[in-house]
Structures are given as C-alpha cells and as structure tokens.
C-alpha cells in the first residue's frame, strides 16, 4: 500500500512543481524578447547589400513578405541591392545559400528557416564575420546565430482567435480545432494558447484538435469526418484562413453551417471573401508587413543602434463588418490583404 501512495504523492509534487516551471519558461521567453542587443560591432557605412536566405518561396504569404522586404529596401537609398536565395525546403541548401551570401559580402542577412537548428552554424559564421542576421516571420529564435527577430507571436494570435470565438459563442459550447502541420511552432503555440484561454471558459469543451497542414482540401476532408463523428459542433477554432474555408465548405455541404460559429481566420483573401459573403468569422491578421519591419530592424543594427532581441509585429482583429476594407474580390483566393502599394504587389 505504501508504494502506490508514495508514487501518487511524488506525481502530485511533480505536477505542482511543473506549473510554476511553465510560467517560468514563459517569463524567460518574454525576458529574452525584451533583451537589449548591443550592435556597435555591426555598425557599417552605407551602401548596404541585403541578403535574403529564404527557406522557401512557394507559399503566398512568404511571397508577400518578400515583396514587403523589396518595397522597404527600395525606400532606403542606403540599400544598394537585395540578393534573394531560395532553399526550396532543403535545409542543406539553405546552409549553402547563407555561405554564398557571406562570400558575396552582404552586409545584412534576413532569413526564414526550413530547420532552425540546421542553419545555426552557418548563421553563427555570418555573425562572427560581422554580418547581422534577422529572423523574419512567424517565430522567435534565441541563439548566437540570430542577432534579432522580427516576428509574429503565435501564442498572442491564438489567444486573440480563441477569445473572439468564445465571445461569439457566448462563452459556451463544443468546439473543434483545425491546426497547421503537427509539431510546427504555429501548431504547438496555437493549441497552447487555445487551451490556456479555455481555462477561463469552463463551458467550452474541445472535442478534437486536428491538423490540416495549411491545406484546404485536407481540412475539408478531416471536417467531413468530424461532422460524422460529432452530431453537434458549436464552434471551430481555425486561425489559418486557408484551412477555415475548407472547414466551412464541409459544414455547408453537410447542411450544418448554421449550427457553427467560425473563429476569425487570417487575412488570406479566399477567407476574406467567405467572411464578406457570410458576414461572420472575421480575421486576426498574420501581417505580411513583418518583412518591412525586418528591413528597418536590420538598418538600425547596421547603424549601431541598440535593438530589442525580438520585435513583435502585432496581430489585429478585423470584424466581419470591416472586412470589405481588406477583401479583394477580383484577386485570387491565394492572395493576402496587405499594405503594399499596388505596383509592389506580386504579379
């Protein structure tokens, strides 16, 4: 009898100990974001050559982000050239791309990784040679190879989406979650944010968390099965608009769209069209202008100005009533609402 009792006590102690540890980890992350980086060693005289080591260029969000980089670079006379490499989802190639950019004597490297750990040695090499590196996009990285980050906080985004959904559901009901690729920072952070927000809404029940891989057809197929499995679904947590459309279509085809509250998606044009048509859902932005912010951050480093380790580009909520200001009905679905001037939008 004694042994099980000891085991239970030990487990309880571990659980209790783990709770403050989680908070501690979040606190450490927040402190790291706010950490000031001394940049004097990176100070250089213009003109600057900016290198962009893209992990991939084959999705529309990234294409818009790159256009923001090009647009911002064009606004600064001190930037003479922007060199872009595309690793095509190959970490090995991205390492080679970064080494190529170093050998081409670029003054600043902006990057988004295929595999963060795989490219760290190459990034560290750049930093040692006095080339600052700026992680550009969805996640925050804390390592010697990354001087600063221009990022979008997925936890904050997930929290905003969850709270808006719960508000629209009047704080109660059964929900399903449609998340990106399992194991990615986006999927992990969004689910964590959802679960944390649910602690304040005791009448919200998560029926199932699924992974639609940012794929409209897959999200639709999964939802078709969810609809078979659950006779009642009151709400859908889906921060990615690309998947939200697939989910909504499955509900619509099953004749069950009226029963469900869709969460805000992002500013993916196909989703914005859906919101404009159905006047529900809204959007929490995943701003493509993070590319512009990365260029500005890089220039401050090259000027030797101290910067914060992390520059979070805030997400904003767009209500269904305001969506018409963002949707572009004559553009393709695979398009993003952005602040880019018309001539800088992808052709």
């Amino acid at each position: 009898m004694k042994t099980p009792l000891t085991a239970i006590c030990a487990a309880l102690v571990l659980i209790v100990a783990a709770l403050p540890l989680t908070s501690l980890a979040q606190g450490v992350e927040a402190a790291r974001v706010q950490e000031t980086v001394a940049t004097a060693r990176f100070k250089k005289a213009a003109p600057y050559r900016v290198g962009v080591a893209a992990g991939y260029l084959s999705n529309s969000w990234v294409v818009f982000c790159l256009q923001h980089i090009r647009y911002e670079a064009a606004r600064h006379k001190e930037i003479s050239e922007v060199l872009v490499t595309d690793a095509g989802f190959n970490p090995g190639k991205q390492v080679a791309d970064i080494e190529d950019l170093i050998s081409k004597n670029v003054n600043l490297i902006l990057y988004w990784p295929v595999d963060e750990k795989a490219i760290q040695p190459a990034l560290e090499k750049a930093v040692v040679k006095g080339i600052p590196t700026v992680n550009t996009g969805g996640g925050f990285t804390y390592s010697p190879g990354t001087v600063a980050n221009a990022f979008i906080d997925q936890v904050v985004l997930g929290d905003m989406v969850a709270r808006q959904l719960f508000k629209d559901m009047r704080g109660k009901g059964k929900i399903v979650a449609m998340l990106p690729i399992a194991g990615t920072t986006a999927a992990v952070d969004q689910l964590a944010a959802l679960r944390t927000a649910m602690k304040e809404f005791s009448q919200i029940e998560l029926l199932s968390a699924e992974y639609g891989d940012w794929n409209r057809a897959k999200a639709k197929q999964i939802t078709e099965n969810l609809l078979q499995r659950h006779p009642r679904i009151d709400g859908v947590f889906s921060p990615a608009g690309q998947m939200s459309i697939g989910v909504a279509e499955a509900f619509e085809e099953a004749g069950r769209l009226k029963e469900v509250v869709m969460s805000p998606g992002d500013e993916y044009n196909g989703w914005l069209k859906w919101v404009a048509k159905h006047k529900r859902g809204g959007a929490v932005t995943f701003p493509t202008r993070v590319g512009q912010e990365a260029v500005r951050l890089g220039l401050r480093i090259l000027n030797g100005e101290p910067v914060k380790r992390g520059l979070a580009v805030p997400s904003e909520y767009i209500s269904p009533a305001s969506i018409t200001r963002y949707v572009e009905p004559t553009r393709p679905d695979d398009w993003w609402a952005s602040t880019l001037p018309e001539e800088w939008k992808p052709k």
Binding site: S58, S60, V63, P332, D334, P346, K347
Partner: peptide, 12 residues
Amino acid sequence: TQIYSGGTARGI
C-alpha cells in the same frame, strides 16, 4: 509551376 505562378496560386 513556381516560375509560372510566382509562388502564389494565381487564377480564379
């Protein structure tokens, strides 16, 4: 396909 589309799935 990448060259033709420029990375975004153009077309409606």
